[in-house]
Simulated assay, not measured.
Amino acid sequence: MTKNALITGSTKGMGRSIAISFANEGLNLAICSRNEQELLKFKDELQQINPNIKVFTKVTDGSNKAQLLQFAAAAQQELGFIDVVVNSLGTYAHASILDEGEEVFESQLNTNLMPAYEMYRFFGKAMRAERKGHFFNICSVASLNPIAAAGAYSVTKYALLGLTKLMRFEMQEYGVKVTAVIPGSTLTDSWKDAVVDKDTMVLPEDIASAIINIYKMSIGANVDEIIIKPAPGQI
């Protein structure tokens, strides 16, 4: 039976590479984006990669709880049991806590933390009942060592790693796997205005490769956390 994966933040950066990798593995996909044209174009690309899979799409602002839950419910209705949830939605804000705007903390919470919490609450009960499934939460090296120049970002990524650990403790007796993916400097849109050498950074494809290899491990093996940093060190 074909398995199903749901990916947030799925048309750009790490989420995009992860979706492509799961398509290559033959999983049906549920993907979302705020941009309908971008979403439909990516759907076509995924089905060209693997014509045998279903790709469910829904225009969604992942930082909006109501829209996010509508996407989750529609994906479940369309595809059935969701075997894999990848929480890759995230955004970076460069400012210290004392200097950031009034709206920054709430925005970071709603993008970096809330979606993973809500997707766990939505899909976790079914996974617990079926005693199978896998959650991947895309954290950050800021989850381990805060960045002074990215205050709210660091706080929310710290919290996301804490949530991931709690999810794993709650789920391990039911055979549901939970993995924290902890990337260092990764060449995503966060760096689009910077002049960088891609050979000194982690690539989104590296994150996708790690997730696929973890996903394909034996039923009795779980990778609690994986840290992937640039070989020359953090930028």
Rank of each mutant, 00 (worst) to 15 (best):
M1P: 05
K3W: 03
N4M: 12
T8W: 01
G9F: 01
G9E: 00
S10D: 01
K12W: 11
G13D: 02
I18A: 00
S21T: 06
F22G: 07
A23S: 02
A23D: 08
L27R: 09
I31D: 04
I31M: 14
N35K: 15
E36W: 08
E38Q: 15
K41T: 10
F42I: 14
F42C: 11
K43A: 06
D44W: 05
I49N: 08
I49D: 04
F56S: 02
V59M: 02
D61S: 09
D61G: 06
S63H: 08
S63D: 09
S63N: 10
A66K: 09
Q70W: 05
A72K: 02
A72Q: 03
A72S: 12
A73G: 11
A75I: 15
A75M: 15
Q76W: 09
L79H: 03
I82S: 01
I82T: 10
D83E: 07
V84Y: 09
V85H: 01
V85Q: 00
V86H: 01
N87W: 00
S88W: 00
S88E: 03
S88H: 04
G90K: 01
T91S: 13
A95R: 07
A95Y: 07
D99I: 04
G101D: 11
G101R: 09
E103V: 13
E106V: 08
E106N: 06
L109I: 13
T111R: 05
N112A: 11
L113Y: 03
Y120W: 14
R121L: 10
F123R: 04
F123T: 01
G124Q: 12
M127V: 15
A129P: 06
G133C: 02
G133R: 13
F136T: 00
F136C: 00
S140R: 07
S140T: 08
A142Q: 11
S143E: 13
P146T: 10
P146V: 14
I147F: 13
I147Y: 12
G151K: 03
A152Y: 08
A152T: 12
A152S: 14
Y153A: 03
K157M: 12
K157N: 11
Y158K: 15
Y158W: 15
L160H: 01
L161T: 03
G162N: 13
K165W: 08
L166V: 15
L166T: 15
R168S: 01
E170A: 08
E173V: 10
Y174E: 13
Y174W: 14
G175C: 11
K177A: 03
V178K: 00
V181D: 03
P183A: 11
P183M: 04
G184Q: 07
S190Y: 04
V195K: 05
V196W: 02
K198A: 09
T200H: 05
I207F: 04
A210L: 13
Y215A: 00
K216N: 07
S218Y: 05
N222A: 11
D224N: 13
I226M: 02
A231S: 06
P232V: 02
G233L: 03
Q234K: 08
